[in-house]
Design a protein around this nucleic acid. Sequence first.
DNA 1: AAGACGAAAGTGGTTGA
DNA 2: TCAACAACTTTCGTCTT
Length: 316
Amino acid sequence: MSFIKKCPKCNSINVVEDKKRGEIVCRDCGLVISEGSVDTGQEWREFSYEDSSEKRRAGAPVTFTKHDSGTGTKIGSGSDVYALPTSQKRKMLRLKKWHSRSSTALERNLKYAIIELKKAASILNIPQAIEEESARIYNLAVRNGLVRGRSMEAVVVGCIYIAARRYGLARSFNEICKEMHIDRKELGKTYRFIARELNIKVLPSGPEDYIPKFASALGFSAKTQTKAQDILKRAKSVGLTSGRGPTGLAAAVLYVASLITGEKRTQRAIAEVVNVTEVTIRNRYKEILEKLDLEEELKEPVKKLEEEDKTEILLE
DNA sequence: AAGACGAAAGTGGTTGA
DNA sequence: TCAACAACTTTCGTCTT
């Protein structure tokens, strides 16, 4: 088994391998568990003169997380300029000044925005791939003139939120607002505006995105988590999910699953982790019990668990 | 005493006129 | 723009284990 299954930081099993980047990333807390794994891609060595024109390359990959995509030029301030004769030196320094002044408003905006973005991404523990996507969205937003008149912070965080949604990252709107100390109204308005103008469809996050995250935070086994996903699927097919808050539903489903597998947590404990009230959990829980007949399953598990306990003891 | 349950009143967001 | 509305929260009392 070469693949790490659990995140060492948050203990989540929602761990994804990104072959392109050679990284193993936790989708819940964004921790990069391992990087620099072997690149199985094509090798670029040259063996003949013809190869040199096809294969030779230079520079770092193009990225949106640098304001000039990492391809800009700078006139250095190194000692070689000062080593030149006086007239030449003056000329070089003048060039340097004009070169830096000639950067456009757009470039300047991007430069600061990307600093903001990196700050926000590190506070929110956003994986690199999503940070890149956020930067791409911000790029588009600036080029379409959507940033003027809005606070840069709100736009940047809005872009992160949109990117996180598109990647199915389990970060709720409330969480982001709280961690970034941003007004909910402002962020909501801003991200919706950007999504609309750029024609990006932001699908509301579903409860399934949150199950792995909350399950690991509560210390549930994989079995309970699978059970929760299973119950959720059934709840969906009966139409219990429409119009309900995704976090509340995830909480209720986890609660039921915990009863079935015998890993019971109190409603309060779950409510605290999930950030909803016990009442909400109860309401969803009640609905689930009404529409899905789970009675047998709620009684059965205890026996099952006892059997498993015995086998575990025998194995030891 | 802790947990589960539910009623009642209040809050913030969505929808439709 | 405003009122109606559903979902959710807060608060609090009751019941069960």
